[in-house]
């Protein structure tokens, strides 16, 4: 992706990382962020995830 798009994703993903109230995003929250930024399709999907043994 372009640097501009990566910057947009970095801002929404990391802006609260230093906050004591930070909580790790759920998969659904992450997917909502991707969709808002137009990041759709199989690459940004969680379908087919297989937990690491």
């Amino acid at each position: 992706m372009t640097i501009g798009k990566a910057w947009a994703l970095a801002k929404v993903w990391y802006y609260d990382r230093l906050s004591p109230e930070f909580h790790r995003r759920t998969v659904d929250e992450a997917l909502a962020i991707f969709e808002e930024l137009g990041l759709t399709g199989p690459f940004w999907s969680f379908a087919g995830h297989t937990p690491t043994p």
Partner: peptide, 9 residues
């Protein structure tokens, strides 16, 4: 991506 994330954080 994280190099931009450092600034965002």
């Amino acid at each position: 991506w994280d190099m931009l994330g450092v600034h965002a954080a």
